[in-house]
Nucleic acid binder design. Structure first.
Lengths: 125, 125, 125, 125
DNA sequence: GTGGTCTAGACCACT
DNA sequence: GTGGTCTAGACCACA
């Protein structure tokens, strides 16, 4: 479920965080379900427990999960987070359009690429 | 022309590289014109010459500039670069559409944001 | 009567302690009345009896309850406790004023906030 | 300038964070001035550099400082932070008033304590 | 068993 | 020199 790419320049804990964000936002991990324990996941991925701990701490800070000492870590309710993520993506759209305009990409070319993206309906990995 | 933001978390050399890329791609810096010398630019920006050296090396590696021993560094022809950048942006469009679809943003909402971006015609900083 | 918030970062036993303190200080639980048994309360809240045990021990240590071997735990007389709590709150007032002064909150602003708080007469949850 | 209290139940990194917040909010540490390096401060306090690193990371996350790789950590502009802190304190005032009312502290007693706090004019440690 | 903190020591990227 | 990441291993609080 979680894959570490050692060639990736980003730190491991960040990759773990991002992967969980994806799984949570897509609803693969349901609210209040339990995450693997810090130690278990660390063993599975053959990385240090502290690294997982850091990833979980970051996810908790961002509101994706909540942790209870002695019990474990659990998925938060994701309604609010999904809305935030949507807003974030739409903001990126604006920035990308701006960049595109500056370098001379026409609205037609841009839109055709957007359509191309939306066409691939089944491929929702 | 170049502004360093020390509060930006990215390394300084990367900020310098990005700024030059922008200026070159937009055609502000014309092909074959000379860049400021490493030492001068370092003094102007009050940063370490090594940092500028590294930025120039990176720009050369990416084909944005070329250096002539004993003469200095010069802007490369940007036709090819502009095309690369366009392709890069269109690829980003596809990726963004993919992300948007996965989180449940409809094509309508996405397109309306794209239009909003293209509407702001005057604001081409 | 007791609600556990698992998303609360504080340990469960602490939440139980605090809730009982509230109920005792407000007089909802009358002096010498009996508390639910450790086992029963643990079952009701679906938590570990050890956790309740710890909460009761803490409440006894602080003088909120007393336990009789073989009979159970009982609410202490709350007169003295109420006075302690009042002193405690007034001490917090002093500390808060100190903090406020240091950061530049004027007496006027502070007092208006205090009045605002005392105005809301009905909302005594 | 920074004192660690080992009897304090809170983690060391949190004590460091809080102390710096105080110094920054009070304006003792001026914007853009440099903090001691992670290693130096760790040596001075005889604690592990990682602990200081964590404190600095937390301060950066909260916007109190900004760090530049290879250069050091610096104080952020604190105007915004002061306002946030003021709002936070005024909210605490409301909560304290609520608690006070519930336990039977009269407005008169509360206000006299507030006045007592504001009277001690010189003692601004 | 769980999460959370801390230490000691290493390595990397950046200036 | 600086900050940032990671590992290995320890200890604590909590359930």
């Amino acid at each position: 479920m979680i894959i570490i790419d050692y060639k990736d320049r980003r730190p491991i804990y960040e990759q773990v965080v991002e992967r969980f964000q994806e799984l949570i936002l897509k609803g693969v991990l349901e609210p209040d379900s339990q995450l693997p324990s810090v130690r278990n996941l660390a063993m599975d991925l053959s990385i240090n427990p502290n690294t997982i701990q850091r990833a979980y701490a970051e996810l908790e800070r961002q509101g994706y999960i909540y942790s209870v000492k002695g019990k474990g870590s659990f998925i938060s309710d994701n309604n609010h987070l999904v809305q935030c993520k949507k807003d974030e993506i739409l903001l990126e759209v604006l920035q990308l359009v701006k960049e595109a305009k500056e370098i001379g990409i026409t609205k037609e070319i841009f839109l055709s690429k957007v359509n191309e993206g939306f066409e691939e309906e089944g491929k929702d990995d």
